[in-house]
Computed example of a mutant assay.
Amino acid sequence: MSDIIIVSGSPSDNSKSKKVLNYLGTLLEQEGFSIRHISVKDVSKDVLFEGKYDSPEIHHIATLLQESKGVIIGSPVYKGAYSGVLKTLIDLLPQDVLKHKPVLPLMTGGSPAHLLALEYALKPVLASLKAHNLKGLYFIDSQIDKQGEITIIDEDTLKRTKKQLYYFAKLAK
């Protein structure tokens, strides 16, 4: 069992949201948590496209989520919401898969204009899975360095991120 499950909703191998999620996982590992990463890219296309909610893959993901102490879930903003492939994965999971689970939602976007996608798109769907949603994190492209060891390059954003992350960690313990 992993303490924290990190779910990437990005269909891209080289996305900013995936880079930030990996960085948060590293910070949590330094705090003694075991981390497991799940990407929408890891789920078979036929399972997602054909809506195979009873597949062994979906059952395995649901079990990992249910047995974890906390979940971080992130996505880039697409058309004012989270990625469609993340929505497809979420739709296949059991209705109460995140019941009483601290969940830290995260989104990345090109500008602050899509900040509300976190509040009006991602957080409500996580709440429908019975998640204990935390405040959440939103990053714009200029705050992220995909090449560097420290992914979040804006000092104020990094401070705010660590504050949210350590609050999440406290709830997960």
Rank of each mutant, 00 (worst) to 15 (best):
A121Y: 07
N133H: 11
G110D: 05
G110E: 03
I58Q: 01
K87V: 07
V43W: 01
V125Q: 12
P124L: 15
L93N: 08
T63A: 12
I58D: 04
S83M: 06
G70R: 06
S68M: 08
S128T: 14
L104E: 01
D91N: 09
G51R: 04
H60W: 11
G80N: 13
G80I: 11
L122K: 06
D54I: 12
V125A: 08
L92P: 01
G110W: 09
L134D: 01
G80P: 12
A81Y: 11
E119S: 07
H132W: 11
H132A: 15
A121L: 12
E50S: 14
P124Q: 14
D54Q: 12
N133C: 08
E50Y: 11
L65N: 02
L115W: 10
L104Y: 03
L64F: 04
I72M: 03
D54F: 07
A62F: 00
H132K: 12
G51P: 00
L98S: 02
V71H: 04
L118S: 00
I90H: 02
V47Q: 01
G110A: 06
P94I: 09
K52G: 05
G110F: 02
Q66F: 08
L126I: 04
L106P: 10
A117V: 03
L98K: 01
L48D: 04
I90L: 07
H60C: 10
A117P: 02
L129R: 04
L92C: 13
G74T: 06
S68V: 08
S128K: 15
K69L: 06
A131H: 05
S111A: 12
Y120N: 09
A113P: 03
P76E: 02
A117T: 07
